[in-house]
Amino acid sequence: MAQLTYREAIARGIAQEMRRDESVVFLGEDIAAAGGVFKGTVGLLEEFGPVRVRDTPISEQAILGAAMGAAMTGLRPIAEIMFADFFAVCWDIVVNEIAKSRYMTNGQMTFPLVIRSGNGGGLRFGAQHSQSVENWAMMVPGLKVVVPSTPLDVIGLMAASIRDNDPVIFLEEKALYATKGEVPDGDVVDTLGSAKVLRQGSNATLIALGNMVPRAQLAAEELASAGIDCTVVDVRSLVPLDTQTILREVSATGRMFTVEENPRLCGWGGELASIVADEIFYDLDGPIVRITTPHIPLPAADALEDLAIPSVTRIVETVQKSMNS
């Protein structure tokens, strides 16, 4: 058992899989010699060499095209898109090519590849380096979407994503890179499509993803001292989606709150609300409430960014207001 940061867990997860499978290769901008701009891939070049860990030019279409071509011919590439915002310059390869080609070819091709990317706000980087893009990916048939919230989940879900035979968009929360957590010795392998219940309560269920998970947990502690006992569910994987856990936990408390970093429209919480309303409407004791960033581009100033992204205080106040009304 060791204390590891979220950023150290990335290299640990990738290294674990590169050791067991020669077909795993890794490419991206500044990932090799520099160890990543967030220092998430330090040591991989030294251990696996420049043939398996390769720096690329600033060419996101080439990076993802290369990953796709390598995957369709037998490799298991991991590609890094440095900031998730940069998906916008290579989204064609993701959406039109990687996501659709298995279906279009009637199953002739498989694409066992992982695209890692630094996602979300909190670092005061402004509107083009802070977006939460998980919903861009979630709405495309043919993509799996994973967002870990702890170092342990980074390793386990990374391993599961690399071993998976489908394309996985693996979003690392930039705001969590410095956070620490306990990680057992030896290999860690998790399962895609399994939500985690982090806290069991009886009054309300908070459903959170990525960077919003620790905030939901802190909010739940404050709410408990104010007499509102909350369940906290970490979704972890948007596709595949563990709806059974979510339905069960919402059903148990009768109240559902989502905590989403994304701007308001078409966030994953809207889809969850629809599923809950369709399937367990009569188990609800009150309205479904979504706590999100307003529908705005993210501002750079720390004071403004803190106002935009759901904070512990906002979660507590929103839940209290809704539960007490």
Partner: peptide
């Protein structure tokens, strides 16, 4: 290995297949 209907998209993909041959 596919016919591609978004102009230019397959040039990087062909690079990936070539990389795979080189690697293996």
């Amino acid at each position: 290995m596919g016919s591609y209907a978004i102009i230019g998209a397959h040039l990087p993909i062909a690079c990936g297949a070539a990389w795979s041959a080189q690697y293996r």
